Amino acid sequence: NQASVVANQLIPINTALTLVMMRSEVVTPVGIPAEDIPRLVGMQVNRAVPLGTTLMPDMVKGYA
């Protein structure tokens, strides 16, 4: 099963992502693939992302 990117903490709206904010986990539904974590660093979320939430492509500005 493919691992997805999951929020390791509450990520406030418009926050630029850092490695410490994300972890990989096998979840359903599948979100952004864990191998894209390096690409996500520095990108901003367009909404608040609660701890444990799977990051979906539409949550990250410029990802989709």
Results as ranks from 00 to 15, higher is better:
residue 1 N to A: 15
residue 1 N to M: 15
residue 1 N to R: 01
residue 1 N to Q: 15
residue 1 N to F: 08
residue 1 N to Y: 14
residue 1 N to P: 15
residue 2 Q to H: 14
residue 2 Q to L: 09
residue 2 Q to Y: 07
residue 2 Q to A: 14
residue 2 Q to I: 09
residue 3 A to H: 10
residue 3 A to V: 09
residue 3 A to S: 10
residue 4 S to P: 00
residue 4 S to V: 15
residue 4 S to W: 10
residue 5 V to M: 02
residue 5 V to N: 00
residue 5 V to I: 11
residue 6 V to Q: 12
residue 6 V to S: 03
residue 7 A to R: 01
residue 7 A to G: 05
residue 7 A to H: 01
residue 7 A to Y: 01
residue 7 A to W: 01
residue 7 A to T: 07
residue 7 A to S: 08
residue 8 N to E: 13
residue 8 N to M: 12
residue 8 N to C: 03
residue 8 N to S: 14
residue 8 N to I: 15
residue 8 N to V: 13
residue 9 Q to H: 13
residue 9 Q to N: 08
residue 9 Q to I: 15
residue 9 Q to A: 04
residue 9 Q to K: 07
residue 9 Q to T: 07
residue 9 Q to D: 13
residue 10 L to T: 07
residue 10 L to I: 14
residue 10 L to W: 08
residue 10 L to R: 06
residue 10 L to D: 12
residue 11 I to A: 01
residue 11 I to M: 12
residue 11 I to S: 00
residue 11 I to F: 02
residue 11 I to P: 00
residue 12 P to H: 11
residue 12 P to R: 03
residue 12 P to L: 07
residue 12 P to Q: 11
residue 13 I to H: 10
residue 13 I to S: 08
residue 13 I to E: 08
residue 13 I to M: 08
residue 13 I to W: 04
residue 14 N to L: 07
residue 14 N to E: 06
residue 14 N to V: 05
residue 14 N to T: 06
residue 14 N to M: 04
residue 15 T to W: 11
residue 15 T to L: 04
residue 16 A to S: 09
residue 16 A to V: 05
residue 16 A to H: 08
residue 16 A to D: 02
residue 16 A to T: 07
residue 16 A to W: 09
residue 16 A to L: 15
residue 17 L to A: 01
residue 17 L to K: 00
residue 17 L to T: 01
residue 17 L to Q: 00
residue 17 L to M: 08
residue 18 T to V: 05
residue 18 T to Y: 03
residue 18 T to F: 09
residue 19 L to W: 07
residue 19 L to D: 02
residue 19 L to H: 08
residue 20 V to D: 07
residue 20 V to W: 11
residue 20 V to N: 06
residue 20 V to C: 09
residue 20 V to I: 07
residue 20 V to R: 09
residue 20 V to K: 14
residue 20 V to L: 12
residue 20 V to F: 13
residue 21 M to H: 05
residue 21 M to F: 13
residue 21 M to R: 11
residue 22 M to S: 01
residue 22 M to H: 00
residue 22 M to P: 00
residue 22 M to W: 02
residue 22 M to R: 00
residue 22 M to G: 00
residue 22 M to Q: 02
residue 23 R to V: 12
residue 23 R to Y: 12
residue 23 R to W: 07
residue 24 S to A: 10
residue 24 S to T: 08
residue 24 S to P: 12
residue 24 S to E: 12
residue 25 E to I: 03
residue 25 E to F: 04
residue 25 E to R: 03
residue 25 E to M: 06
residue 25 E to S: 08
residue 26 V to E: 15
residue 26 V to I: 13
residue 26 V to P: 13
residue 26 V to Y: 11
residue 26 V to S: 15
residue 26 V to W: 10
residue 26 V to N: 09
residue 27 V to D: 09
residue 27 V to G: 03
residue 27 V to C: 03
residue 27 V to R: 06
residue 27 V to N: 11
residue 28 T to M: 05
residue 28 T to S: 07
residue 28 T to K: 02
residue 29 P to G: 12
residue 29 P to D: 15
residue 29 P to S: 09
residue 29 P to R: 02
residue 29 P to K: 06
residue 30 V to T: 13
residue 30 V to K: 03
residue 30 V to W: 07
residue 30 V to H: 09
residue 30 V to C: 06
residue 31 G to T: 02
residue 31 G to M: 05
residue 31 G to E: 02
residue 31 G to Q: 05
residue 31 G to L: 01
residue 32 I to N: 01
residue 32 I to Y: 02
residue 33 P to D: 10
residue 33 P to W: 11
residue 33 P to L: 09
residue 33 P to N: 13
residue 34 A to M: 09
residue 34 A to V: 05
residue 34 A to I: 15
residue 34 A to F: 06
residue 34 A to T: 09
residue 34 A to C: 13
residue 34 A to G: 11
residue 35 E to P: 12
residue 35 E to G: 09
residue 35 E to S: 10
residue 35 E to N: 10
residue 35 E to T: 11
residue 35 E to W: 03
residue 36 D to F: 05
residue 36 D to M: 10
residue 36 D to T: 11
residue 36 D to S: 12
residue 36 D to H: 08
residue 36 D to R: 05
residue 36 D to E: 09
residue 36 D to I: 15
residue 36 D to Q: 09
residue 37 I to K: 04
residue 37 I to V: 08
residue 37 I to R: 07
residue 37 I to P: 01
residue 37 I to D: 00
residue 38 P to I: 06
residue 38 P to K: 07
residue 38 P to W: 14
residue 38 P to R: 08
residue 38 P to M: 07
residue 38 P to E: 08
residue 39 R to H: 08
residue 39 R to P: 03
residue 39 R to K: 10
residue 39 R to Y: 13
residue 39 R to I: 05
residue 40 L to D: 00
residue 40 L to Y: 06
residue 40 L to C: 03
residue 41 V to M: 09
residue 41 V to A: 06
residue 41 V to E: 04
residue 41 V to T: 08
residue 41 V to F: 10
residue 41 V to K: 06
residue 41 V to N: 03
residue 41 V to R: 07
residue 41 V to Y: 11
residue 41 V to Q: 15
residue 42 G to P: 01
residue 42 G to Y: 10
residue 42 G to H: 06
residue 43 M to D: 09
residue 43 M to A: 05
residue 43 M to W: 11
residue 43 M to Y: 14
residue 43 M to Q: 15
residue 43 M to S: 04
residue 44 Q to E: 06
residue 44 Q to M: 14
residue 44 Q to P: 05
residue 44 Q to N: 06
residue 44 Q to Y: 13
residue 44 Q to L: 07
residue 44 Q to C: 02
residue 45 V to H: 00
residue 45 V to M: 14
residue 45 V to F: 01
residue 46 N to P: 05
residue 47 R to D: 15
residue 47 R to G: 05
residue 48 A to T: 15
residue 48 A to R: 11
residue 48 A to H: 11
residue 48 A to F: 07
residue 48 A to N: 14
residue 48 A to Q: 09
residue 49 V to K: 01
residue 49 V to W: 02
residue 49 V to Y: 01
residue 49 V to P: 01
residue 49 V to T: 06
residue 50 P to H: 09
residue 50 P to L: 14
residue 50 P to E: 15
residue 51 L to E: 14
residue 51 L to K: 07
residue 51 L to D: 10
residue 51 L to M: 15
residue 52 G to A: 15
residue 52 G to S: 14
residue 52 G to V: 01
residue 52 G to C: 04
residue 53 T to E: 15
residue 53 T to Y: 13
residue 53 T to V: 08
residue 53 T to M: 14
residue 53 T to C: 03
residue 53 T to L: 11
residue 54 T to D: 01
residue 54 T to W: 02
residue 55 L to R: 00
residue 55 L to N: 00
residue 55 L to D: 00
residue 55 L to H: 01
residue 55 L to F: 08
residue 56 M to S: 08
residue 56 M to T: 11
residue 56 M to N: 11
residue 57 P to H: 12
residue 57 P to I: 06
residue 57 P to T: 14
residue 57 P to V: 06
residue 57 P to W: 07
residue 57 P to Y: 07
residue 57 P to G: 07
residue 57 P to S: 10
residue 57 P to D: 03
residue 57 P to R: 11
residue 57 P to L: 06
residue 58 D to L: 08
residue 58 D to F: 12
residue 59 M to C: 03
residue 59 M to T: 05
residue 59 M to K: 02
residue 60 V to D: 00
residue 60 V to M: 13
residue 60 V to A: 02
residue 61 K to Y: 10
residue 61 K to Q: 10
residue 62 G to N: 08
residue 62 G to C: 15
residue 63 Y to L: 07
residue 63 Y to R: 02
residue 63 Y to H: 03
residue 63 Y to F: 15
residue 64 A to Y: 02
residue 64 A to P: 06
residue 64 A to C: 15
residue 64 A to L: 09
residue 64 A to F: 02
residue 64 A to K: 11
